[in-house]
Design a protein around this nucleic acid. Sequence first.
DNA 1: CCCATAATTGAACATATGTTCAACTATAAG
DNA 2: CTTATAGTTGAACATATGTTCAATTATGGG
Lengths: 118, 118
Amino acid sequence: MNTHHDVCQVRSVDKKKVRAVMKSMLTDQEAVHLSETFSVLADPTRTKIIYALSSEELCVCDIAGILGMSVSAISHQLRILRNMRLVKFRKEAKMVYYSLDDAHITTLFNEGLNHIRE
Amino acid sequence: MNTHHDVCQVRSVDKKKVRAVMKSMLTDQEAVHLSETFSVLADPTRTKIIYALSSEELCVCDIAGILGMSVSAISHQLRILRNMRLVKFRKEAKMVYYSLDDAHITTLFNEGLNHIRE
DNA sequence: CCCATAATTGAACATATGTTCAACTATAAG
DNA sequence: CTTATAGTTGAACATATGTTCAATTATGGG
């Protein structure tokens, strides 16, 4: 609930503009969904994992080795990526091999990578 | 410093793969830079602000009105967007008008928007 | 000069997030 | 069956993040 006690009392300087923008504004659901999408890529460990998996299918142990981090930390992050359907996995004996499973986010990832590297 | 006490002892299941991936791996700096870029868009309030400003130049008061949030909360977020050079502003009398100032991130933003709306 | 309004700022607060540690499951070898 | 290894998980912990609240700055009107 919005009590407006700290919201600008004029409510709007340009009511016409305000009404127009409000009409096309993202819904809360859209804004949350959109920001959650970006959140997946908003962590250096996860960007490294995604980058690593973009060239090779890898087991948890090797990802940990490549990033110089604990298997546990990597496993926790892989769970997040799994829940977001960004990676898929395949079991073979005692090993679990991970690979990318989302062409969409990969595009977004590469778009971001191009931006910082330009 | 990495003590390796919890890192897989085998160090690598497939040393060839591991070495190859490590060679092309993002640097810490790149990974942090990349994830920081995505972090800017990883908050629903900021995505709404960016969306609002993509159609109109707006003063702080009107942005607050559109989002139904306090002027203070919006101002704090605008400072973040300003520091990241995502928005620029212009003073007129007592008002401060904000507008977008980064074509790059806007592309990334729209890419994300397309993904969730497809 | 005094007051009202637009906006910014810092501190406090609650919540979210990422890593560590230890315990646990699953699989395979002897 | 026992042991070793790969991986997962939950709790604890520290840190980061976003909003609120109160105080402050900046601008303009009477």
